[in-house]
Design a protein around this nucleic acid. Structure first.
Lengths: 213, 213
DNA sequence: GTCTATAGGCTGATAGAC
DNA sequence: GTCTATCAGCCTATAGAC
């Protein structure tokens, strides 16, 4: 039996490969990720990637598809909370903050793909991805209409909103490394303190000025 | 003479390689960038990279060092503008906005490196990079002290500030591709309209509320 | 200073044993 | 279903002609 040709649950094999793939794709990018490394982290042979997913690209697609669906579902739930537009927007910021903290690998993979202009995204993934557009659009539109928010461009606001949170997540690895090496002048904000700060910054920034009608 | 062993100005050769390197490193990342491709875009042989820069890593370091220095100098000038803290912060947003628009390749390379936790940064580059920290720190500190800004965490504010602008730049390639393919529902904001939007969002978000002393 | 040719190593994918 | 062995191709870096 000594590690030779052990037949395991194929579903466990697929999950192990996907977990390893998330780590390696996030850390090295699509081209930098080596199938040998993914196999090794899953304690499996790299040939299993071809058997179960049809190759490196297939594994990448499957992982991303799963993660995008989960993210959309989480964010949709955030937006769907009851209350005023202000409360809904606050809930969205909280949900995105939690997602960024709990799914750092997904955020890295997605950001790399954005920089790559989506070069490794198959059509199926792209279409799933489009769901992110317009997630907060309705909340912003209604909040502007009701006078809870200033008259801002919803598209631009959406980009700012996501950017501030994602950037915190993307710069976290470097901040953590520098902090570990004792080379960071000021202490870094924690996730919860940053989300709180950001929620206030956005809500204050969107509030109508006193001089408005 | 037919393209064989033409002796050109070595400084032009170095510049051509650096220009090509910026494109290729930005588009494919460090591991994804192939020296053959860099050489081809510079209309030179890839062996020239080793002769002039000591290898792929050396070329990467040189390019990044130059770009970071230019960026710091531009942003410093923005912050150093005369006027109130509010005006200085507005000037910084403008300067970062212009930088993001005019140096998209640099921003991509830098963002990739942040996601990589600075894996390809040599010490010299890292130290140069530290200069970005604290660029707006003083402006924020003084604005809070003078009562122009709310009492916010300057570190967190700095991250938000940069994030909203950089994210616009990072997502630009995908937005442009989708727009080109006619698959974007709403029209994308232009650079100037986005910077204007963002400056207002930040300044409004930092303004003390009417109820504050 | 620039080129060509090539060494030496790593990669993704596949064939075939078990 | 999982492994080992291997192929064909690509990569960076270098040696040496010019």
């Amino acid at each position: 039996m000594d590690g030779t040709t052990a037949i395991r649950d194929p579903e466990r094999t697929r999950e192990a490969l996907k977990t390893a793939a998330r780590e390696v794709f996030a850390e090295y990018g699509f081209e930098g990720a080596k199938t040998r490394e993914i196999g090794a982290r899953a304690e499996l042979n790299k040939a299993m990637i071809n058997y179960h997913f049809g190759g490196k690209q297939g594994l990448f697609t499957e992982v991303l598809l799963e993660d995008i669906r989960e993210a959309r579902s989480r964010l949709s739930r955030g937006v769907a909370s009851t209350g005023s537009s202000t409360e809904k927007l606050a809930a969205f910021v909280e949900a995105l903050g939690r997602l960024s903290e709990e799914r750092p690998l997904f955020l890295k993979i997605l950001s790399r793909e954005l920089i790559d202009a989506g070069r490794h995204l198959e059509l199926q993934v792209e279409e799933e991805f489009f769901g992110f557009f317009g997630l907060v659009q309705e909340v912003l539109d209604r909040g502007i209409e009701s006078g809870e928010f200033r008259l801002v461009d919803p598209h631009a606001t959406h980009i700012s909103l996501v950017g501030g949170l994602v950037w915190f997540a993307l710069t976290a690895p470097l901040r953590e490394r520098l902090a570990r090496e004792g080379r960071l002048p000021a202490p870094s904000p924690t996730w919860s303190s940053y989300v709180e700060h950001y929620r206030e910054l956005i809500l204050t920034g969107l509030a109508p000025s006193a001089s408005d009608s």
